[in-house]
Design a protein around this nucleic acid. Structure first.
Length: 577
DNA sequence: CATGTTCGCGAGTGC
DNA sequence: GCACTCGCGAACAT
């Protein structure tokens, strides 16, 4: 049977992924920090298509046949059903979604946000019957709103509900929650100052309540998830079928690795970002570090006749050429799917981003070309992934036996040359599959969060941190260099510091979140956040120190005042829709 | 808090 | 080697 459980069993081979990482991470090194690491892995999905089962719609749902006219601004392409992918494509009888969806205002804009999750599976669509969605129109209206993304500046105005901001936090001794201060060895030392909301005794309860209602707010709605998964899986399937049947260079593509927050169950607010890595196997490669942080490499194919030889220039495999060809094939494969638009290429970005609009929400799908390397990880990873104390030595070994991935990504100007190699032709290592595996199996005890085990609040803490970061980014564009990968990396290090499941009791949410924020703030103040897998790479070498300090200050402020930003957005959400 | 749904995903099976 | 089915867990929903 499936064993879900202890996964810690065999390594899976698939996996690969490439998500985009933080935007630019630069290098710096300082191995000093204590960090922990974790890895994740992803697996591939099977492609299968499902047959149309019909999704029934619930009560009155009217079906709308394919078209959804709701177009929204963005791409408006109606979703006509495009031809399904060849084979089995299911025909998918229409899913009638409930149409309505007023446009609610918020279309999520999320320009700068780094992507995170997004992945989807290609299975094709089974038609899902998502009966649910149809709920009564009325209800729908309200529910649909996508709350979360607040776009605008929220700043002030909003009526905060009673906000009890205690202004004087004055005395809060250290953290309120202090009780358990767990050990945090390596943790950065600086802490937020007063930690925690202040004083009033009830504050703690109030904060706890606020955090929980916030979590409710940012959770992905089941029907939205179903709708998004359906369109995303369909297009991914289409792309893979095309690559396998119509191309030479990419026909060996393996199962897609669905990575990123959506597939890690960490996506917040809307199911609008999917990351899928398409792994191309390479037999043997020689990799040479490009730069000093150990994250980027030039890649050379060894003997053999791989179809990828076409992209090999003198001695190295040209990432830019290969990506260009890949992009062209992706474009061809989605040509018939008028509802999807291929976004213009962004410099140094390894993804071909496709977007579509579903019920006024823009869904973006990052399709990332990657090479799967089934040999030992680069030497720069030696000091990384320090999960022994958290997940165990054995788990670590299993992860390190899995392949690693290389994605066509560079930083800065593509024309910079080092040792005869242009920056645009280098590759960055990716361990998204390990990140995913770790997040899915994040307990020190095998039973953490499982049926017989105790629930922890690790994921909740990370979701809150991501949400807080998103909100702060929305109100201050100078924070656009910070992304969810910074939050995730900080979280992984935190897990390696506070290793026990009892350090993350579900009932201690506010305290655990407090400690996580403290960690994040300390790293921002130091300007050092090591890549979890490659400690020599500093993910904060990009953003200027001032910005790091400003963000640290804003976070501390929110924390000390009891997260007024969360309150504002809750209120807004309530009225808004 | 228990029960029900659906997606994601691994594993098993048949061809 | 596939393509497909089956069953379970996570997370949402009632």
């Amino acid at each position: 049977m499936t064993g879900r459980g202890r996964p810690r069993k065999s390594p899976d081979t698939k996996c690969a992924e490439s998500k985009t990482r933080p935007e630019e991470m630069k290098r710096v090194s300082q191995p000093g920090c204590p960090e922990k690491d974790f890895t994740e892995e992803r697996q591939n999905g099977t492609t299968k298509e499902q047959k149309p089962k019909e999704r029934k719609k619930a009560n009155h749902t009217e079906e709308k046949p394919s078209v959804q006219s709701t177009g929204k601004d963005k791409t408006t392409k109606p979703f006509t059903e495009a031809p399904v992918q060849g084979t089995k494509a299911k025909t998918y009888t229409g899913r009638a979604k409930t149409t309505e969806q007023p446009a609610e205002g918020i279309t999520k804009t999320q320009p700068a946000i780094p992507k995170d999750t997004t992945k989807d599976s290609l299975k094709t669509t089974k038609v899902k019957t998502r009966g649910v969605k149809a709920k009564s129109p009325v209800a729908e209206v309200t529910t649909n709103t996508h709350p979360p993304t607040p776009k605008e500046t929220t700043k002030a105005s909003i009526k905060t509900k009673k906000a009890k901001t205690c202004t004087d936090k004055a005395n809060s001794p250290e953290e309120f929650t202090e009780k358990t201060t767990k050990r945090q060895p390596a943790t950065p030392k600086d802490t937020m100052k007063a930690c925690v909301p202040q004083d009033s005794c009830d504050d703690k309860a109030a904060v706890d309540s606020l955090l929980r209602t916030t979590l409710e707010l940012i959770k992905i709605k089941r029907n939205e998830r179903a709708d998004a998964a359906e369109v995303v899986n369909k297009i991914i399937n289409q792309i893979i079928v095309h690559l396998k049947k119509k191309t030479l260079c990419f026909k060996e593509v393996e199962e897609p690795l669905r990575t990123g927050s959506y597939y890690e169950n960490l996506k917040i607010s809307n199911p609008d970002e999917f990351d899928v890595m398409l792994p191309i196997p390479v037999d043997r490669v020689n990799i040479e570090p490009f730069g000093e942080d150990g994250a980027f490499y030039s890649v050379a194919l060894k003997r053999g006749n791989s179809p990828l030889k076409t992209f090999q220039e003198t001695t190295t495999l040209s990432a830019s050429k290969m990506l260009k060809e890949f992009r062209g094939e992706v474009k061809k494969s989605v040509k018939e799917f008028k509802e999807w638009e291929v976004i213009k290429k962004k410099k140094g970005c390894p993804a071909v981003t496709l977007t579509t609009t579903l019920q006024s929400i823009t869904i973006s799908l990052d399709v990332v070309l990657c090479l799967v390397v089934k040999s030992s990880w680069p030497a720069f990873t030696r000091e990384g992934l320090k999960i022994e104390d958290w997940l165990g030595r054995k788990v670590k070994q299993e992860h390190k036996r899995k392949p690693y991935y290389l994605v066509p990504k560079y930083e800065g100007r593509g024309t910079v040359e080092k040792d005869g190699v242009l920056a645009k032709d280098i590759w960055r290592v990716s361990f998204s599959h390990i990140e995913k595996a770790i997040l899915k199996n994040h307990g020190s005890q095998k039973t953490c969060c499982e049926k017989g085990g105790e629930r922890c609040c690790r994921k909740e803490c990370l979701k809150l941190l991501k949400y807080l970061l998103n909100l702060l980014k929305e109100e201050d564009s100078s924070f656009d260099k910070f992304c969810s990968y910074h939050a995730k990396t900080t979280f992984l290090h935190a897990c390696c510091t506070r290793t026990k499941d009892t350090d993350w009791r579900a009932s201690s949410l506010s305290h655990c979140f407090h400690l996580l924020l403290k960690d994040f703030v300390a790293r921002l103040k130091h300007g050092v956040l090591h890549n979890f897998f490659i400690p020599t790479q500093n993910l904060l070498s990009g953003p200027a120190r001032t910005r790091c300090n400003n963000l640290a200050r804003r976070i501390t402020e929110e924390h000390d005042k009891g997260f007024p930003i969360f309150k504002r957005h809750q209120t807004k959400n309530k009225l808004g829709n």
